[in-house]
């Protein structure tokens, strides 16, 4: 569709475009500048690249790890654990929220427990998890679930409770039962809440899986990080960190895209 814009309008649009390009350029510029400075400092021996590593060494290490095939394996393991923790934590948290919304008695009974669990640093449960779930993937996924499930339940429950009372009244005047109020009103009205929770849970699940790997694992990016620091291979540590950044960013991007598609109407 062609629009007939006025000259002033076109000027305004150009201004907007220029602004957007400037912001993008600045973003990339900051990254390039930092990396360049880091590299330069290492090359000129301002800093000890044995301790700080540097972009060129990280790149070399990255190529090396990719060539050896180990990186894919560790990335796969961590991603699998994170996605599993993310999915289970979100679904379980949502179900808990539904049950507590459904029954006021349950809600009043269990709310203080949720609050306490939410303030508890879940990493403190590490030793218990290891003893109960073993030292494999199960305990890492459990950690990721624990970290995301409570905040999910609390956020979603708050969304459910805050749903427009007048709309609920309208449905009740039509003769709706609680199940219909949930499916026709509360669930669709809280799709944006769910999407916001998914975004939070990307971070939560990564914290859980990497923490879990610190504690128990024999594989995964968390394991590689700990291993790298123990053998004092800062190149390995930095490479893992960068890869982790990329993976987390990618997952967040996927959720943000999903939100954009789903939330159009809500």
């Amino acid at each position: 569709m062609k629009n007939n814009f006025t000259k002033e309008h076109l000027l305004y649009l150009r201004g907007q475009r220029v602004h957007k390009i400037l912001v993008h350029t600045a973003r990339i510029g900051v990254l390039v500048l930092l990396l360049g400075l880091w590299e330069l400092a290492a090359q000129l021996n301002w800093i000890d690249s044995f301790i700080t590593s540097c972009p060129s060494r990280i790149w070399k290490k990255f190529i090396e790890l990719v060539a050896a095939g180990t990186l894919w394996h560790h990335m796969g393991v961590s991603t699998y654990e994170t996605l599993a923790g993310f999915a289970i934590g979100t679904v379980l948290g949502y179900c808990i929220a539904v049950v507590l919304w459904w029954n006021v008695f349950f809600k009043e009974t269990f709310e203080p427990y949720l609050v306490v669990l939410n303030s508890l640093p879940k990493i403190a449960l590490g030793p218990i998890i290891i003893i109960w779930a073993g030292t494999g993937k199960a305990s890492i996924i459990t950690m990721a679930v624990l970290i995301s499930v409570v905040i999910t339940a609390i956020t979603i429950l708050n969304g459910f409770v805050a749903t427009d009372k007048e709309k609920a009244l309208l449905l009740r005047s039509m003769g709706a039962n609680r199940f219909q109020i949930f499916t026709k009103l509360v669930a669709p009205a809280n799709v944006p809440t769910l999407m916001a929770t998914l975004k939070i849970n990307v971070g939560m699940a990564w914290i859980g899986s990497i923490m879990g790997e610190y504690l128990v694992s024999k594989e995964g990016l968390g394991y590689l990080l700990v291993y790298g620091s123990q053998v004092f291979q800062l190149d390995l540590v930095m490479t893992c960190t960068v890869v982790l950044c990329a993976l987390a960013g990618l997952m967040y991007g996927a959720v943000a895209l999903l939100e954009k598609i789903v939330v159009k109407r809500f």
């Binding site: 007048e166 709309k167 009244l169 309208l170 005047s173 009103l185 809500f266």
Partner: peptide, 14 residues
Amino acid sequence: NVGYMLQRDQLFEW
């Protein structure tokens, strides 16, 4: 069978 019409239209945005 009564029909209730409220202050605000309460149409569901989605």
